[in-house]
Nucleic acid binder design. Structure first.
Lengths: 342, 342
DNA sequence: CGACGTTTTGAAAACGATTGCAAAGCTACC
DNA sequence: GGTAGCTTTGCAATCGTTTTCAAAACGTCG
């Protein structure tokens, strides 16, 4: 029972009972002083606070969660945190949650199949909500969440399913902006380079490019994929840029890939944007560095995280809301890797 | 009570009692089937498992934690996750913890003063251990942890205090390796550029450089600091590299800063390493990129995280271990920003 | 068949809080 | 002073588990 320490010698864990005894009131009184909105006279409030302070009492969040209906724990199921983008999102989410007094429980999962496991673990800890930013959500798991009244927020992917809110960037529109900039800058042979079809956002970005170009009477001259883990596009970019009919622009699914393309172009002695223009997606901090000055589509990570948190609160207040798909607007940031538009 | 759903209609939350009833056994029996090392006959085990599966039962981790002596929750108090280094550590830690069935609770704190708050929140949730990777640990808080039997692991900083284990890279030795490489490469006018004195590791690295140079009869020709948040060394590097008596090498407290120096050198038309050699610290993935090929001191993040987790297990098994300071060895990785040694 | 050690079992007491309910206190008004 | 109405209070039930303890079941052996 309890920790290894003898519980009377050093007062290992101070409980509500200790405070009650010290203040000469019942445990209910102490509880009421610590839960706001509960009634307690000024006198007892003062005595309880004094006793609690003297003893160093803090309510046990676990016990509180067991009986109450909130744990103030929100789980984030995420594929990797090493990725700049993901870690920025993690940070933004933690910040936004903190404003509501909620804490972040991390489930780092490797591979799509593990999403399920991560979500289950979140449910074991009675998380108030589950944010999934890796792969998709298995049907059985989302149904379990629904039954348990635990909101699911899926980020970066659309899944039309009861109880699953989807929040993601407006990838198609971002790609459209990029395409129009490139075409207006004189590019006609535009290629796409992204992660494979496993990356939902990337495929939307590719579709967006295709649609926008079609609107202008064009089509991508090439499409290539990059191993999402191992490289950031060196190999694929080399192939693309060494082809006999070299593209005059490459639109990339991700800034990291675009930076790889920049490096490859540099290595091949090609000038950017004169020989080949490059556009990325996400606007990670590195893209702005003087060495790169990458034109890219800004993905507002902070707004996304705040929207996620707002949606969580809304659903906790009103559990039966219909599922939504919310698109966060994206905005082109023109820097030095595309030609200047007059 | 419970979630918003009527608890009989859809069986919102399946408890141990439901399983017991379905299997025709007591709750104790169910509990024993789900805790390993407990005795249950093959027959009941089978019936309980069948019932649990049919009902979709999973034990409530919170209730379990309330009575048991482990929560399997480990808290990480961290300053920022946007930093590549920190996010790599976060990921490595989550992975290492997962191997022991432990989950990661994140407290993202802004500023040193908030470390206390983050740790307190961790204690509220009865975390089994607290890993601090931001600033230092207030005395009162470490004493509270000690009293509660919660191990503290402090990363990246030394704090000689009862119950606080410190795990950090061998910054001095890394700096020594860098200094020797530079000097053997012919550099004599070596400058240091790092974050201010608030960054403990950086100051150790600076000291290490100073000591190693002193050993060789040299001293740093300049020392400058960089705003740890806003830039990665452009301004400071520009000053340093435009000085009348330009240094022939810059040793940086961080890879990010070193990359900033590389960019600055490039912008000023200086050749690296011929005009100025550059060495970083940490060996973040970006340093290996073809555009940079930064010589740097490798900080083994995965090893650090594993050591942290090992130490947590050791302390949980044997709470009264004396505090340790463990140095993780660092290793120089020579790439293209220093002169080749014959 | 009875005695005896060894599992296996269930009842009940924790764990540390919250909260419904009814009693108690208080204020104010007639 | 009595009573209505409101606030404050404490008792006890509850949340979903684990675990102690003693009883029951079981197998073995004399």
């Amino acid at each position: 029972m309890g920790r290894a320490l003898p519980q009377n010698s050093c007062m290992g864990r101070i409980t509500i009972r200790d405070v009650a005894k010290a203040a000469g009131v019942s445990t209910s009184a102490v509880s009421r002083v610590f839960t706001d909105g509960a009634s307690a006279s000024a006198a007892t409030r003062a005595r309880v606070n004094a006793a609690a302070k003297a003893l160093g009492y803090r309510p046990n969040a676990l016990a509180r969660a067991l009986v109450g209906e909130r744990t103030n724990l929100v789980a984030l199921v995420i594929g990797q945190a090493r990725n700049v983008f993901d870690s920025l999102f993690l940070e933004a989410l933690a910040d936004a949650l903190a404003k509501h007094g909620q804490n972040l429980l991390i489930s780092l999962v490797h591979g799509e199949s593990a999403v399920d496991e991560g979500m289950m673990s979140a449910l074991d800890y009675q998380a108030d909500a589950v944010v999934v930013a890796a792969g998709t959500v298995p049907l059985a798991t989302s149904e379990r969440c629904l039954r348990l009244g635990v909101p699911i927020i899926l980020c970066g992917r659309v899944l039309e399913r009861e109880g699953v809110d989807c929040i993601l960037g407006d990838n198609r529109d971002g790609a459209r902006q990029a395409a129009e900039l490139l075409v207006r800058g004189g590019c006609r042979r535009i290629a796409y380079l992204g992660r494979g079809p496993t990356a939902y956002s990337d495929s939307e970005r590719e579709d967006g490019l295709r649609e926008a170009l079609a609107h202008l009477g064009l089509a991508p001259v090439a499409t290539a994929t990059v191993d999402p883990d191992n490289d950031h596009g060196f190999a694929a970019a080399t192939t693309l840029l060494s082809a006999p009919q070299r593209p005059d622009a490459i639109f990339c699914g991700t800034d990291l890939i675009a930076l790889g393309v920049l490096e490859t172009a540099r290595a091949l002695g090609l000038r950017v944007p004169e020989d080949v223009a490059v556009v990325g997606f996400d606007n990670v901090p590195m893209s702005a560095w003087p060495s790169f000055r990458l034109t890219t589509v800004d993905f507002p990570i902070a707004t996304t995280a705040e929207t996620v948190v707002e949606r969580i609160q809304a659903r906790l207040a009103e559990p039966n809301l219909p599922a939504i798909v919310r698109r966060i607007p994206t905005r082109l940031v023109a820097r030095a890797t595309t030609r200047r538009i007059p």
